[in-house]
Simulated scan of single mutants.
Amino acid sequence: MNIGEIARRAGVSRSTVSYALSGKRPVATSTRRRIQDVIDELGYRPNAAARALKEGRTRTIGLVIPPAGNRLTHMQLDFVASVVDAAARVDLDVLVSPSGRDHDRSFERLISVSRVDGVILMEISLEDSRVRRLQDAGLPFVGIGHTAGDQEMSWIDVDYAGLVRHCVRHLADLGHRRVALVTRSPELVAAGYGPAHRAREGFEKALAERGIDGVEVPCGDDARSGRECVTALLESHPDLTAVTTINEAALPGVQRALADAGLEVPYDFSLTAVAGRTWAEDFHPPLTAADVPALEMGEKAVSLLVERITTPDGPPRHILLAPSISLRSSTAAAPVGRRARTHPNGVR
């Protein structure tokens, strides 16, 4: 028995049967019911497709990632991997779609032709048009991250404000009197990227609480940008002795900039971050950081989305995680007398 025979007996085209089974395009309720009656009569079971048809679902969820032209950070890759693994455990497929820049059509296709039962959004801005679009479409969705007005959406996020605040307090308690916050790319910050703005909030509170000076700089999500960013910081703020960051992709460049300046971590300069545990532990020296549980967050996002799909009228759920700061080897007491820096021309 095949789709052609089902189509013949139901009096529809093969493509209509295919669309009914896959959910890729809408099919009239009466037609869907007629096709299902033939499937039941013939005992046809095309893997999970018949079950999806009975349930009126595609058994596919969408995962909306940053633009495809961007290199995903280790943390973002952990989110993707954990969502795919968690979805597979509950017999769901994942359709990955980029959004932003030139990818608006991809996002629109994802939600406008019944391709998925629900969506998980990554990289959410304080004011995010994708959230409004999903709300207007009535499609269940969950955020890894959240907007400023978050009461009508379910989400899981990290307390960037609180964690950056704790990182700066730790540095201040070690005697550092001028600290820099290295955030994400200028484009993301300008677009209202939530973690960057919340990190700024925590940074400014900690500076005021401890009575120390600070400077915030955006930085591209790559090692080269990290190197350029910190090189410029050291030149403009020679009394800078510590950096905290939410940009793990820039950290190798940050480290190279410090080495270029003849500064050794942690004896001459301290580093803290909000980053994935694996990234922090593999850093040299191991990084004092708030360890973001990216794998747990992706898994929980799938669980929240399944709740939204099965109970669409249920109240939105909000999960804000505040992992502890793991003290490793990248922080130490502020240097009493800064070691002379080695300039590119070799002059000390």
Rank of each mutant, 00 (worst) to 15 (best):
residue 2 N to A: 08
residue 3 I to G: 03
residue 4 G to W: 03
residue 6 I to Q: 01
residue 10 A to G: 00
residue 11 G to S: 07
residue 12 V to S: 09
residue 14 R to E: 11
residue 19 Y to H: 12
residue 21 L to G: 00
residue 23 G to P: 01
residue 25 R to M: 08
residue 25 R to V: 02
residue 26 P to Y: 05
residue 31 T to M: 02
residue 33 R to I: 13
residue 33 R to Y: 00
residue 34 R to Y: 06
residue 38 V to G: 13
residue 43 G to L: 12
residue 44 Y to C: 07
residue 50 A to I: 13
residue 52 A to C: 10
residue 54 K to Y: 08
residue 56 G to K: 04
residue 56 G to H: 05
residue 61 I to R: 05
residue 67 P to A: 08
residue 71 R to V: 15
residue 73 T to I: 04
residue 74 H to P: 07
residue 77 L to S: 15
residue 81 A to K: 15
residue 85 D to M: 09
residue 85 D to L: 15
residue 86 A to F: 03
residue 87 A to G: 07
residue 89 R to W: 09
residue 89 R to D: 11
residue 89 R to K: 15
residue 90 V to A: 12
residue 91 D to Q: 15
residue 92 L to M: 06
residue 93 D to S: 15
residue 94 V to H: 06
residue 94 V to P: 03
residue 96 V to M: 08
residue 98 P to V: 04
residue 100 G to D: 06
residue 103 H to Y: 12
residue 104 D to F: 01
residue 105 R to H: 10
residue 107 F to Y: 04
residue 109 R to G: 05
residue 109 R to A: 01
residue 114 S to G: 11
residue 118 G to Q: 07
residue 119 V to S: 02
residue 124 I to D: 00
residue 126 L to N: 05
residue 134 L to G: 06
residue 137 A to D: 01
residue 139 L to Q: 05
residue 139 L to N: 05
residue 139 L to A: 03
residue 146 H to K: 10
residue 146 H to T: 13
residue 148 A to W: 04
residue 157 D to S: 15
residue 159 D to Y: 09
residue 160 Y to G: 02
residue 171 L to H: 08
residue 172 A to S: 14
residue 174 L to R: 15
residue 175 G to Q: 12
residue 178 R to F: 05
residue 179 V to H: 10
residue 183 T to W: 02
residue 186 P to L: 09
residue 188 L to Y: 01
residue 190 A to P: 07
residue 191 A to C: 02
residue 191 A to D: 14
residue 193 Y to T: 04
residue 196 A to F: 04
residue 196 A to E: 04
residue 196 A to K: 02
residue 197 H to Y: 01
residue 198 R to F: 10
residue 200 R to Y: 12
residue 207 L to W: 07
residue 210 R to E: 15
residue 213 D to T: 13
residue 213 D to P: 03
residue 218 P to N: 11
residue 222 D to G: 07
residue 223 A to P: 01
residue 226 G to S: 01
residue 229 C to W: 06
residue 229 C to K: 00
residue 230 V to H: 03
residue 232 A to I: 01
residue 232 A to F: 06
residue 233 L to K: 00
residue 234 L to D: 06
residue 234 L to H: 09
residue 235 E to I: 09
residue 237 H to N: 12
residue 238 P to Q: 10
residue 244 T to F: 06
residue 244 T to P: 08
residue 245 T to K: 05
residue 247 N to F: 04
residue 248 E to T: 11
residue 252 P to T: 02
residue 260 D to N: 13
residue 262 G to D: 03
residue 267 Y to N: 06
residue 267 Y to I: 07
residue 268 D to K: 00
residue 272 T to C: 13
residue 274 V to M: 12
residue 277 R to I: 12
residue 280 A to D: 06
residue 288 T to L: 04
residue 289 A to D: 02
residue 295 L to S: 08
residue 295 L to W: 14
residue 298 G to M: 05
residue 301 A to E: 04
residue 302 V to I: 05
residue 314 G to P: 15
residue 314 G to E: 11
residue 314 G to Y: 11
residue 317 R to H: 13
residue 318 H to T: 14
residue 319 I to S: 11
residue 321 L to K: 08
residue 323 P to I: 14
residue 324 S to V: 14
residue 325 I to Q: 12
residue 326 S to Y: 12
residue 326 S to G: 07
residue 327 L to D: 15
residue 327 L to C: 14
residue 332 A to V: 13
residue 333 A to K: 15
residue 333 A to I: 04
residue 334 A to G: 05
residue 336 V to L: 06
residue 337 G to R: 10
residue 340 A to T: 03
residue 342 T to F: 02
residue 346 G to A: 09
